[in-house]
Design a protein around this nucleic acid. Structure first.
Length: 344
DNA sequence: CTTTTGCTGAAATCACATAC
DNA sequence: GTATGTGATTTCAGCAAAAG
């Protein structure tokens, strides 16, 4: 039999309620009593029964994390571990544990979320994505379940607390950076436009071109794979005028494009500049090292978790959204070009 | 003598399985 | 079909001792 609060109480010659208050560090218990009880807990190897606690408090001290439907790469995408680190950093401080969806399909994930919500296995959720017509979002809103989104909601924006970058501005900035480096023909390789983040960045790219009076936009939407990257690059090489710079939305995409450029013996950055969002070790260690838009994924995760915990502690709190600033990290993958080269 | 402090100890409560 | 047991928490009336 496991040691219970009553065993501790008996041994320490106090009431069970006193032991409970010691655990909670209640201010009305003297330091002396606390020390005595804690010593007994040590001796007996007592640990609170979390199931029992959950039963009475109606809280699991657990946060659910909803990943987007995984392409096979979703766990290798450096965004995920970086954001997870930020979330677990704060959640650990606040003594919450983490429960993550593990499903591969939309249906699996939806079912897992239903289980978490209806089964009350988590107190709140963090969504790691924002997608059009998302049944998961609909469910959370209908059930009035506490959650925070990383990304900007496409609908019900007044009812959702979210943490995001200004992706439109970030994409505009990085495109503008290339324009000011002399590039006139800038290709953009985006992701699935059902996700808000991809829409925003695409829009930012277009805005920058428009502001610079550049007519030709070269837009690609590809999945992340070696094959798709090869296709993209060979399509680009056939274009006239040929792009001298690439903006990508996804770090893994950037790496696969870099690899495809290498295969085609296109020199980076001399013949082709390339830049991406997200800034992990991959960008730092690639060859050449990659100029990136650092979206501060750690901070996105951290702020999302912080907002959620605040909300759980104070359910009536005012709706709050956070924009995490982005910054351009300059490395060797982009180069200035002269007017002549740009035309030729 | 009254108030405050620091506790007591019983009871209600939670969701659910199993026993009666 | 109802009663019971699980373990921790919270509440509440109440008590003894210390403080005012």
């Amino acid at each position: 039999m496991a040691v219970t609060i009553k065993d501790v109480a008996k041994r320490a010659q106090v009431a069970p309620s006193t032991v409970s208050r010691v655990i909670a560090d209640h201010p009305k218990i003297t330091q002396e009593t606390k020390e005595k009880v804690r010593k007994i807990m040590q001796e007996l190897g007592y640990h609170p029964n979390l199931l029992a606690r959950k039963l009475v408090t109606q809280s699991s001290q657990t946060i659910g994390i909803i990943r987007k439907t995984s392409s096979k790469h979703s766990l290798s995408d450096p965004f995920f571990p970086a954001a997870l680190q930020g979330m677990s950093d704060l959640l650990h401080q606040k003594e919450y544990s983490i429960l993550m969806t593990s499903g591969e399909s939309d249906e699996d994930i939806y079912r897992e979320v239903v289980n978490m919500v209806q089964g009350k296995s988590v107190d709140g959720m963090i969504m790691l994505y924002s997608q059009d017509e998302d049944p998961v979002l609909k469910l959370l809103l209908e059930q009035k379940f506490p959650f925070v989104m990383i990304g900007k909601p496409t609908e019900h924006i007044d009812r959702v607390m979210y943490v995001d970058n200004d992706n439109v501005k970030a994409a505009r900035d990085i495109t503008d950076y290339l324009i000011r480096a002399g590039h006139q023909h800038i290709a953009y390789v985006g992701g699935d436009p059902r996700f808000e983040v991809h829409k925003d960045r695409e829009q930012g790219y277009k805005q920058a071109l428009k502001l610079a009076n550049i007519q030709t936009s070269m837009l690609f939407r590809k999945e992340v794979s070696r094959e798709a990257a090869r296709e993209t690059i060979s399509e680009m090489l056939k274009m006239s005028p040929r792009p001298t710079a690439i903006v990508t939305t996804d770090e893994l995409m950037a790496m696969s494009l870099l690899s495809a450029l290498y295969e085609q013996q296109i020199r980076v950055p001399d013949e082709m500049s390339i830049t991406t969002f997200m800034d992990s070790m991959l960008s730092e260690l690639s060859s050449p090292p990659m100029t990136t838009v650092d979206i501060h994924a750690f901070q996105l995760g951290y702020e999302a978790a912080k907002t959620l915990v605040d909300l759980l502690e104070n359910p009536n709190m005012m709706k709050r959204n956070i924009l995490v600033p982005t910054s351009i990290v300059v490395r060797e993958s982009c180069e200035k070009i002269s007017e002549n080269e740009a035309i030729g």
